[in-house]
Amino acid sequence: MALHPDPTSAAADPHEVADEVNEEALAVVMQTVPLGAGVVAGTAVAILVLGYLLIYLLVFVPRGVVG
């Protein structure tokens, strides 16, 4: 039975090599990206806090004090 040679590494394949980063282009992108991430994360946190407040004020408080 013939032995197969080790497969060649794909590390140097152009598809696997990260593109060179153009720092200036990155800076331009990063001007707007944090804002978008902030809006998404802010909306998510706001929905969570709103849910907490609604349950606290409409369910928990009306049930009364137990302490």
Partner: peptide, 28 residues
């Protein structure tokens, strides 16, 4: 493509982070 000085870029990111921290601080 507008040229943005790296320092300016850092400051913008810092500003976003501080704004986020402020918002979360208000919530807490």
């Amino acid at each position: 493509m507008t040229h943005v000085h790296p320092e300016m870029h850092e400051r913008r990111i810092l500003g976003t982070e501080l704004l986020w921290a402020f918002g979360v601080g208000i919530f807490i």
